[in-house]
């Protein structure tokens, strides 16, 4: 922990020394920095640099709140219109939508511990050829991973709360914008989506999230995050079909610097209103039971359309699963 903090401090100092330091005043008056193709590399670097000027996520959040003069109250009669059904615009499962396969595993600047975790995943995937995703049994993805998940999303704005909902695992992030502070530290504990507070500045929603559980930004080679990860987000509907969010992840265990990314979601054209967000339950269909193998990869358990899975499968894990099922529960 101390080592990670030292690395973060050194990175901040080095950043300032080499002139990559952008004064907060430079982005002080921004309402939103557009993602123009021709200038996005520079703009992204500027937003990354903004995050690096603050030692903690709360310092960045408080800076943004001060710049917004503590934010504005939403008029119940004129709420931001975030209606509709949305899905992630680009990036696949990559936390950084700009990351290309040729760029390597991540655009984050990792600590030694963070890099070791990624190296371990490289080893697992190259040697074993597969992995087990912890959400295979409908465990919540958690935040920040929530951001990368595909499928349908709905965003509900009310004067006092905004709900960011994903069809996947019936997952709802509640953002309290009524001026309340975070839960008291002594009464808080790590949870899947943590504790989120925020404020509106016109039609921009700024969010601070803490008290999160450890996890991974996504499966594959993407980094892990610790239960010290905290997130600052600025959400903005940039046009009728697009909502974007600047995100800065702070994690002294895995990240040597705050990790800036811009996320986006596209509204799905649904003039006949046929789409529905349906409940997710991995137990609803026997054929969706995914087990973790002894090697740490993934396998289906028994199918309901195969008479004797253990007899026809070449996988000892399937045979073992079938054997376990045959044993009485008290043995």
């Amino acid at each position: 922990m101390q080592r990670a903090c030292a690395i973060t401090g050194a990175a901040l100092l080095l950043s300032a020394m080499i002139g990559n330091y952008v004064n907060a005043a430079e982005v002080k008056g921004m309402t939103w920095l557009a993602q123009e193709t021709s200038t996005w590399t520079e703009t992204k670097a500027k937003l990354q640099s903004l995050g690096e000027q603050f030692p903690t996520s709360e310092a960045l959040f408080e800076h943004l709140r001060k710049e917004a003069s503590d934010g504005t109250s939403l008029d119940p009669a004129a709420l931001p219109d975030w209606r509709g059904v949305w899905t992630r615009t680009k990036g696949g499962l990559s936390f950084d939508p700009d990351l290309k396969a040729s760029d390597g595993a991540t655009s984050a600047t990792l600590t030694k511990a963070g890099q070791e975790a990624v190296d371990k995943k490289i080893h697992t995937l190259t040697v074993k050829g597969g992995e087990y995703d912890r959400i295979s049994a409908c465990s919540p993805p958690g935040t920040p991973r929530w951001i990368t998940e595909p499928f349908l999303k709905e965003f509900v704005v009310t004067p006092d709360q905004t709900w960011l909902m994903n069809e996947m695992v019936n997952d709802v992030r509640r953002i309290y914008t009524d001026g309340r502070a975070h839960s008291a530290a002594e009464d808080s504990y790590p949870s899947w989506n943590g504790d989120s507070i925020g404020f509106w500045d016109g039609d921009i929603l700024t969010i601070h999230t803490k008290y999160l559980r450890e996890g991974d930004y996504q499966r594959g080679l993407q980094p892990d995050y610790s239960d010290q990860v905290e997130l600052v987000e600025r959400w903005h509907k940039v046009n009728d079909m697009t909502i974007e969010a600047d995100t800065w992840a702070f994690d002294p265990v895995n990240l040597a610097k705050p990790w800036y990314t811009r996320q986006s979601w596209t509204k799905i054209e649904d003039p006949d209103h046929v789409l529905r967000l349906r409940y997710w339950d991995c137990g609803e269909n026997q054929n969706n039971q995914v087990i973790k193998t002894e090697e740490g990869t993934s396998q289906f358990s028994d199918f309901n359309f195969v008479d004797d899975d253990a007899a026809v499968s070449s996988d000892p894990n399937v045979k073992r699963a079938a054997g376990d099922k045959a044993k009485p529960a008290n043995q």
């Binding site: 499962l93 959400i135 990869t297 993934s298």
Partner: peptide, 18 residues
């Protein structure tokens, strides 16, 4: 196919190792 949208849709909930 770690960063392809196509893979996202193909197996977004569990690994496709099987």
């Amino acid at each position: 196919g770690g960063v392809s949208v196509a893979t996202t849709i193909a197996s977004a909930h569990h690994s496709g190792a099987m």
